[in-house]
Amino acid sequence: MNVFRLTGDMTHLASILVLLLKIYATKSCSGISLKTQELYALVFLARYLNLFTDFISVYNTVMKLVFIGSSLAIVWCMRMHKMVKRSYDQELDTFRHYFLIAGCFLLALLVNEKFMFPEVLWAFSIYLEAVSTIPQLVLLQRSGNVDNLTGQYVFLLGAYRALYILNWIYRYFTEPHFSRWIACVAGLVQTALYADFFYYYFLSWKNNAKLQLPS
């Protein structure tokens, strides 16, 4: 475990905490895409099936359980909780995420490390994570205004991806057999998707102004 990986994981965890805080404190999920949250829940469920087959470390197991649990809790809140549900921007969150799921599954069948059920599922989760932020970014783009906590949430998610890239570069040079090219290529795509958001995030930070995305 290197410092980039650990900071990346902590940033990922922080992003989820910020989202839970927003939902819990304001009883509102405005600006948050339910589609993206559902995709994340699917990503974690598909990838962490190995929870039952290979043990890596206590840290690894605990983090996996936290990610699965929190993503399911967020989806549950947005669908079932009376007050939270009311604030959901349903008419802005219209991205057809089923196409993403189908496309990623097809790609995972074609491009994987080994044509075996757990490997195909792993590749599927990697591809799906890379694109699962698209409905969220589309929703923000459509609404234009981004409230403070939602902005921090998306920023932390993007930062987590950027730190993972540094982690791969570090591991590539320090470990003899480290070549996770599927994860690296998908990770690069995922981070690139945030580039536009980052640009406006830094602009608003520099000008000390409210974060606004051009429509």
Binding site: R5, D9, H12, N50, D54, I56, S57, N60, M63, K64, F67, E113, W122, Y164, N167, E175, H177, F178, R180, A183
Partner: peptide
């Protein structure tokens, strides 16, 4: 064939 290392990332 080199066995691929366990997938230890989250």
């Amino acid at each position: 064939e080199v066995e691929s290392p366990p997938k230890d990332e989250l």
